[in-house]
Amino acid sequence: MHLRVDLAPKGKRSLVLDNPVMTASGCFGNGLEFAKIFDIERLGAIVSKGVTLRPRQGNPQPRIVETAAGMINSIGLQNIGVEAIVRDVAPIWATWRVPVVVNIAGESIEDYAELAHHLDGVAGVSGLELNVSCPNVASGLEFGCDPEMAAAVTRAVSQETTLPVLVKLTPNVTDIVAVAKAVVEAGADALTLINTFPALTIDIDKQRRALGWGSGGLSGPALKPIALKMVYEVAAAVEAPIIGCGGIVSAGDAVEYFMAGATAVQIGTATFVNPRAPLDVLEGIGAYLSQQGIEDLRELVGAALPTPRPAAG
């Protein structure tokens, strides 16, 4: 059975995964925790917790609140900073067979460029994923909300690295296709769709917002139909590989994303529901393909699109 996918077929360096199941940033730590729990090396790729230039403590409590078939988080990018990642964590990643993609987040275009520079050529780092859902301190707007700003970040990173560059788009836009096109033109090898949706709940006993930070990002099964439509729209319009992300808890969910045009998928919140969810989804995809008599996963990619998508990878 052919499950192998290439997320950077046109890049300076390829990013070939043995299978299309990745973990989503912020839902798998840096992989170290689960490395003790199950065979994470069977996964297609691991995406690190978002990394910033300097260590961050993150937001006050509460950081998580449950909603209908979902949850809202405002962790606040708690992380140990890029230097500690390079020094302490990457050497462990370098011993793994599974590729690790480092998710990076900045407050300015220069931050992203500097992060990319730090991580270029580091053993154990196989790619970068840009979190463009962060506010640009200069303008207060999220980088990913504006095609030009998203493209500028992508361009700045691409110039600083030979690593494959994935851009994780925010759903918080009027026209996600425009942003997708802009970042691909600026050098993105692949697109991750989508990040969490801006969301809020109120604690009615305390008469104030439930999360310590105020609002946060919605994830989980509640988000899936929204994410799926965005994948479908972008897949119909751009050629770059798409990584579908949003509410996947089962192999059936993943297959929907493939049919909508995704080359790979990321498992996020489902990992909180079941730590082994990424492997369960992978095994379920294999079972689905056998059952359907499909030898090559690529046959499914874009099956539901109006016109077939060029096979990636």
Binding site: F28, E33, F34, R63, I75, T271, F272, P275
Partner: peptide, 11 residues
Amino acid sequence: GCGTGVCYGCA
């Protein structure tokens, strides 16, 4: 959130 040290919710 997760109980396993990956979501950073229970800081």
